[in-house]
Simulated assay, not measured.
Amino acid sequence: MTGAPVCIECGTRDNPCRCKFVGPTLGFLAFVVTAIIEWPVGAVVYIFNHSKGRRIMGHPVSVVYPKVSNAIPI
């Protein structure tokens, strides 16, 4: 039986414990959900427009994960 992944980020100054695990874990889960949707779409768009396809496929890692991870300080 597998559980949800747990991501830990230590050395931050967002909270007194200097470790985050809720934000990075939820950020990773949001990344996976958006990647499942956006990577196939980006691959199809890439055939016709390379730069737009790369932007679509890079969106989960460059926008979704950092926003969700940074929004939750713990």
Rank of each mutant, 00 (worst) to 15 (best):
N49V: 11
V22T: 06
P5R: 02
V32Q: 15
I47Y: 12
I56Y: 04
V41M: 12
P66E: 00
P24A: 00
S69N: 13
N70D: 14
C7A: 14
R55T: 09
I56M: 08
V68G: 00
P60K: 01
C19D: 03
K52C: 05
V22C: 04
A43Q: 06
E9N: 09
G3A: 11
F48T: 07
R13T: 12
V61W: 12
F21H: 13
A35W: 09
R13M: 10
T12G: 05
C10S: 07
G42D: 01
T34I: 11
V45Q: 00
V63M: 14
P5G: 00
L26E: 07
N49G: 08
V64I: 13
P60L: 02
P73R: 15
Y46V: 08
M57E: 00
G23S: 02
L29S: 08
F31L: 09
G53S: 06
D14W: 11
D14L: 11
K67M: 14
A43S: 06
E9G: 09
N15Q: 00
C17Y: 15
P5V: 02
A71W: 04
P60Y: 04
V33R: 05
R13A: 10
R18S: 10
K67G: 11
L29A: 02
W39G: 08
V41T: 13
P5M: 01
K67E: 10
I37P: 05
N70C: 12
I36N: 12
F21M: 10
I8G: 06
T34E: 13
I8E: 12
G53P: 00
V63Q: 14
E9F: 07
V41R: 08
N49A: 11
P24R: 01
A4Y: 14
K20W: 01
V41L: 15
V63T: 15
R18K: 10
W39A: 15
K67N: 12
C19L: 01
A35D: 13
K52M: 07
P66R: 02
V61L: 12
T2M: 09
V61E: 08
E9M: 07
W39D: 13
T2A: 11
G23Q: 04
F28K: 07
K67S: 11
V63C: 13
K20E: 04
I56E: 01
P5F: 03
R54E: 05
P60E: 02
T34S: 15
T25E: 04
N70S: 14
C10K: 05
I36R: 09
P16K: 05
G27F: 03
P16N: 07
A71N: 09
W39F: 15
V68C: 05
K20R: 07
V33N: 06
D14P: 04
M57N: 06
A35G: 15
I37A: 05
I36C: 15
C19G: 06
F48I: 06
N70T: 10
E38I: 02
P40V: 09
P66A: 00
F21W: 12
A4M: 14
R54C: 10
P60S: 08
T34Q: 14
V44L: 15
F48W: 10
L26K: 01
V64S: 08
K20F: 02
